[in-house]
Design a protein around this nucleic acid. Structure first.
Lengths: 188, 188
DNA sequence: GTCTATATCAAGATAGAC
DNA sequence: GTCTATCTTGATATAGAC
């Protein structure tokens, strides 16, 4: 793997595990096997490297979500497919967790990828809810924007309660609750 | 205010703003106006002080929630009262945010207050959902545990999406979505 | 109980040789 | 492009005087 590539991958892992404040250049150098000089040659310090890592992670999450949203089935089934997809629950969301990082939120350039991902996700979910209403699967009295936001939030909040309990169970219960309220009937 | 008290209050503020990893003993000393020697005399280092601060914040959140849960009205109205209460949305949850802190989750003693708060909250919400079912206000086909977990999660996730957008709006939309799905009718 | 001095190691980089 | 050396400041304490 090329040097910038190794730096980005190591940074993505560290940001996911420890957040931005908890990630040091030294740790990035050790995990990537890249030396100090090379790191500062290829990137504009910790912030520049983190930005590249965040952009890639956000794009991956977006592609993964879109694969479910654009898949087969009714709108409700596609929302369920997204909510029920395999997740490493206790690791949390590699992008959502950075939202609690002071230095990220404070700097517009670093907050931008988070903002774009979640704005896209809420809008996409709102569209699917509206589509479900057209199909007759979702109550038309509901506000699609509000329900879309709620779906995005329940995933992020699910990670929070799961990590506090050191167990995936509260996450899974949260998703189950949301799906039941949406009238989704699974095979169970 | 007594010295330990000043230390705890300063630490609570800093943990809320910057998280555990982002809070240094030096910052605590500066914000509290207490010297190094005094800090280490009264508390077992950063971790001990953080533990005291976290325990107090968790208790406050619990008392605040219980005031809504034990208030007047139907179960659904009391859930709504909790969800709609005044919040400093962009600051997030002083306890929930610590869930993304590596050093907190890693150390059992520091994770305990988070676990206890959210376990209590989910159970309390599940009870209220069951009560709402008994009252005939909530669909009895729903699993109270799952819906309780979902309600706890939507608040925490609401903070995540709000902070990413630097706006309270996504938080408010998420809560609105959850309330609509619960069949809560407000005055709007 | 509080203060100042001191210690060790890490954070986050820059400089200049190769 | 990469390496080693070096720099400044901060993190997280401990020691011992007052």
């Amino acid at each position: 793997m090329a040097t910038p590539e190794r730096l980005i991958e190591a940074t993505r892992e560290l940001l996911w595990e420890r957040g931005y404040v908890g990630t040091s250049p030294k740790a990035i150098q050790e995990r990537s096997g890249v030396g100090v000089g090379s790191m500062y040659h290829h990137f504009d310090g910790k912030a520049g490297l983190a930005l590249a890592a965040m952009q890639r992670s956000a794009q991956e999450l977006r592609d993964a979500a879109e694969a479910h949203f654009a898949g087969p089935g009714t709108a409700v089934q596609r929302i369920a497919s997204y909510l029920l997809r395999e997740r490493d629950v206790l690791r949390g969301c590699p992008i959502g967790r950075l939202t609690m990082d002071f230095d990220v939120i404070e700097e517009a350039r670093l907050r931008a990828p988070l903002d774009e991902l979640f704005a896209w996700l809420r809008a996409r979910l709102a569209d699917l809810v509206a589509e479900g209403q057209t199909d007759g699967d979702i109550d038309t009295r509901l506000d699609p924007q509000a329900v879309g936001a709620m779906i995005a939030a329940v995933v992020q909040g699910g990670y929070v309660v799961a990590r506090s309990a050191e167990s995936a169970e509260p996450f899974e219960a949260s998703i189950r609750g949301a799906l039941q309220l949406l009238g989704y009937e699974d095979g169970a």
